[in-house]
Nucleic acid binder design. Structure first.
Lengths: 206, 206
DNA sequence: CCGATTTTCAAACCTTCGTTTGAATTCCCA
DNA sequence: TGGGAATTCAAACGAAGGTTTGAAAATCGG
């Protein structure tokens, strides 16, 4: 692996990540990225095979960062009770709320995709979402044994959605009217709250 | 007022409203609008003084449609108890949830603006939001007499935000996992729910 | 029905976009 | 250290964007 070219790649992805988060895919030009990264314009085509390829790389990194924590603890969950596993899932799902602003950028990118998904995003999700969705589905099945696949899918999406409300609107919630700043303790409290509701709701349906 | 030219203007605004809602401001081209409206390309510059002017007109119509109902009932509210006035405010705020899909388009446009506000939107809000915000502020002051202006502003935004969650995510909420279809009765029920929370919350602070 | 005004139209203009090109430079291992 | 591969670079290309233009057509009051 050649060193200097890795530097170029990294400078491009860092600059692109920031600009895509701020202005969205269409609002970000190749020329703006290379100016911020202080790199030649053709470098994006050389290293990433075009703007789409670069965006795909940024999306992939964001997606991985948001799911790797869950996937890493998949085995532990099996040994826990379904209630504890669910609460642990929720807590990890809310984990990006604490700490680095790297996650804020990722959430902004996903917010852009929520308004109007790009083809790149659709393709990536259909490839990479499977293992993560499988995790949620396994959890759901412990509460709804014997449920048909369609019900499991729906319940999994619903489960993930419970947390994404807080993830998606983190910036707005933290601002003036609400001022919901979530430190470690607050996230723990929030996770307990949501976890309780979900255990109650899913338990009742079983 | 000349008739035929009004037809042209209306065809343009109708087509533009749909395209802006679907693809956002940047994603919508002049050429796409005139093709959908079956109108000459220069007509947009002639009638609206450019793309910005057209977008401004569409935004203004959307803004008016979403606030006119509240403003029309401003006088009635003064004769009601603060609790009833608050509940009526909430109910009217949720009103777009029922009925015409014209409102869905308006909400989609506002969703685009929520991710990254355009200069046109910022300017329009600073001009047209004042009377509507004043309405909410009056309501808040009945619960928080003697509160400083800043607190009133914050509380007003918070009050409006309680409803916008349901308005903004209407389409997603109606879809598969949640299936929250809000007919007249459901909106009435939801308004009572939110109204109760707010009366409780604000009442306690007074 | 005339003549001034308003409105439409096709074409071109200029800018910005993503991508391509081919030469120049740097890198790295044999 | 020399030579082939990898990487950088400035320039240009073609497509698509918003706007402008000036003439043709339609409109409408008198």
């Amino acid at each position: 692996m050649t060193r200097p070219s890795e530097v170029t790649r990294e400078r491009i992805t860092k600059a692109a990540e920031r600009l895509f988060a701020e202005r969205g895919y269409d609002g970000t030009s190749i020329r703006a990225i290379v100016a911020k990264a202080r790199v030649n314009q053709a470098a994006i085509n050389y290293h990433f095979d075009g703007k789409d390829g670069l965006y795909r790389e940024v999306l992939r990194a964001a997606f991985r960062a948001m799911t790797e924590d869950q996937l890493a603890h998949a085995e532990e969950a099996k040994a826990m009770s379904r209630e504890d596993a669910l609460r642990a899932f929720i807590r990890r799902q809310l984990h990006p709320l604490m700490g680095r602003d790297e996650y804020s950028r990722y959430m902004r990118i996903f917010n852009w995709e929520a308004v109007r998904p790009t083809p790149v995003f659709r393709a990536l999700v259909s490839e990479e979402a499977a293992p993560f969705m499988g995790l949620a589905a396994n959890l759901v099945r412990r509460f709804l044994p014997g449920a048909d696949p369609r019900t499991v899918t729906v319940a999994s999406i619903w489960l993930i959605g419970q947390c994404s409300v807080f993830l998606r609107n983190r910036e707005q919630l933290a601002q003036s009217p609400i001022g919901l700043v979530l430190d470690d303790a607050a996230v723990e409290w929030l996770a307990g709250l949501i976890g309780g509701w979900l255990v109650g709701g899913l338990g009742r349906q079983a």
